[in-house]
Simulated scan of single mutants.
Amino acid sequence: MNQVFNFNAGPAGLPSEVMLEVQEEILDLQGTGLSILEISHRSKEYEAINDESQQLLKQLLQISSEYEVLFLQGGASTQFAMVPMNFLTAGRVGSYVHSGTWSGKAIAEALKIGETAIAASSEEDQFKKMPDLQHMKLHPKTAYVHLTTNETIAGTQFQSFTNTGEIPLIADMSSDILSRSFDASNFSLIYAGAQKNLGASGVVIVIVKRDMLNRVSAHIPDIMNYRVHANSGSLYNTPPVFGVYLVNLMLKWIRNNGGVKAIERRNQLKADLLYSTIDESGGFYMGLADPQSRSTMNVTFGISSDDLEKKFLQEAAQHGFVGLKGHRDAGHLRASIYNAVTFEQCKALTDFMADFQKRFG
């Protein structure tokens, strides 16, 4: 195989150990004679995977018994609609923190369901920084506060969160869940697509406080109802079996590599290496996010010349670096350094960046 350094923003790379385990079990799962791709979701083997995955996630995030863990289909984009469908009732307001593209998509979906308000926004700063959570303006009829913890396109990330008291706090953590430690008890609901830090596309994880389920209306379709899925143990309909299996392997990989705090230390070292290369380039490379809001997952940067950026991408591809082109809405360059990306891969990239600057700077 040619050596490839995968910096894609998602679906992202997976650890080689996990991929090898999938390869071993793809034809015969645990001696059943069946592939994970064809096993019944009603089988005792899958139910064991489902239950173990829920418990592993609770352990890694130190989630109390007050919470349910769900494995659903549709990705985070479906959650943009499910959250207001379940909790934005008549006479209440969904308060949203607007921090960039993905929070904007969540707001757009909520507007189709009910009334919304912007609690905080960094639109005036072109979303180059995260909004100030300490000075949110909450509507008196707020049903919940929703925020996106990491904006993959702009490369911004909340460095800390706030306690909203009696008002439920809901978070889209699709691009940084299990990449760093945080106090999950501050949140009433967390959702995350798995394809960046926890597996492959096709499954979304929902962590919901049990008392939130009492607020869910009975007048929405069952397939969109969190309470129905919780009462069914994520088996109301055929779940994304392979996706949950892969999440299970990723959770074990995180556990076996020291847990969330160890992963966080490694992620910080990777981010520090890339940002120092950008900052110490004398202006050849330019960071695109405000330094106080820089993401440890998505490093966005540019070069002063469009022609040089094209040259950079061309040469990077020749050297096996994949996924460095910025999102079409932002342009420039982006290195996504999720959990599975190694420090050595980041070092290879910064060595290439230094060499490129030496030749063209």
Score class of each variant (00 low, 15 high):
N2I: 15
A12I: 11
L14N: 05
V18D: 08
V22A: 12
E25I: 09
I26H: 06
G33M: 05
K44N: 08
D51M: 11
Q54A: 14
L56N: 07
I63M: 04
S64Y: 02
S64W: 05
S65G: 06
E68D: 00
V69M: 06
A76M: 12
S77P: 00
M82W: 04
M82D: 03
V83S: 08
P84M: 00
P84F: 00
M85A: 14
G94Y: 07
G104Q: 11
G104S: 14
K105D: 15
I107S: 01
E109W: 07
A110W: 03
T116A: 02
A117W: 05
A119S: 03
A119E: 04
A119K: 04
A120T: 01
D125S: 12
Q126K: 10
F127I: 12
K128I: 03
L133A: 02
K141W: 00
T142P: 05
T142G: 01
T142V: 01
V145P: 03
H146P: 00
L147Y: 04
E151Y: 10
E151V: 02
E151R: 08
A154H: 13
G155I: 05
G155E: 06
T156Y: 05
F158E: 06
Q159P: 01
F161M: 09
E166S: 03
E166G: 00
P168V: 09
I170D: 01
D172I: 02
S174K: 12
S179P: 05
F182M: 11
F182I: 00
F187A: 02
Y191P: 04
G202P: 01
V206A: 02
R210M: 10
L213P: 02
D222H: 15
N231A: 14
G233W: 13
S234A: 08
P239M: 00
P240I: 04
L246R: 04
V247P: 03
V247N: 11
L249K: 11
L249T: 12
I254W: 07
R255I: 12
N256H: 15
N256V: 13
G259N: 11
A262C: 12
K270P: 00
D272E: 13
D272I: 07
S276W: 03
T277W: 13
T277V: 12
D279R: 09
S281L: 10
G282W: 01
F284G: 01
Y285G: 00
A289V: 09
P291K: 12
T300H: 08
D307Y: 10
F312V: 10
Q314M: 15
A316K: 09
A317L: 15
H319I: 02
K325D: 14
D329E: 15
R334Y: 05
A335E: 00
I337A: 06
Y338F: 13
V341L: 13
T342V: 01
A348V: 10
F352W: 04
D355C: 15
D355V: 15
Q357C: 12
Q357G: 07
Q357N: 13
R359G: 09
